[in-house]
Amino acid sequence: MTDNRQPLLTVDHLVVTYGHIQALHGVSLQVAAGEAVAILGANGAGKSTLIRALVGWVIPAAGRVVYAGRDITHAPSWERTRLGLAVVPEGGRVFRDLSVEENLRLGAYLETNPARVAERMDYVYRLFPVLKERRRQIARTLSGGEQQMLAIGRAVMRGPQLLLVDEVSMGLAPLLVDAVFDALQQLKEEGVALLIVEQNAYETLRVVDRGYVLENGRIVLAGTASELRENPRVQMAYLGGG
């Protein structure tokens, strides 16, 4: 699957430490343009740390992150966003005291063409009609699920080439989980590359082309979605026994 596409993101022997704790021990992976890739892993495996390093919220102790041919290992997050990255962080992190619409506008902060901003906002409202109903509501008063949708919507407003998604299904009712993964599926069909961090392997493997399994800060397994689904180890740990 990767062979005939340009590598969009290359992570090369990435090491991240928090003080004395080493969270990532030399992680390497690739995401091709338009490809959807999963990172599966238990609590504390280092999934969010990986996302933080890709966004620029933590600076790696060693290793490289290359995006579209450019070394962004030490770039500030706004430059990465300018290059085409967007993130749905763990917990959503919507701007609490701003309205739904202001949150979405901020998602398109780098888009100066108002027509395109309006177009994308329409798109987000079609993806999540409930956000349109609540567009004047202050984000902190949304339900947890609505905040997750807003976090996705805000990232989509960037019009990203690569969307990083950190446990978007956490704490959502099954029906909402379906809606959120349907939205991710739709983005993928429109050519957006996805890097999805999840514990919910079942839904994730439905959407992605490939995946990696992260354990204690190391990639221990890699394969296509169907390979991973068939893998006994993945079934044991992430698909509820098998």
Partner: peptide
Amino acid sequence: LAWQAAAMDRDMAGAVGVNL
């Protein structure tokens, strides 16, 4: 708007593209 966002969550404001 960028100032307001940064006051709520500085890192996140950087991640939507605000040059902090």
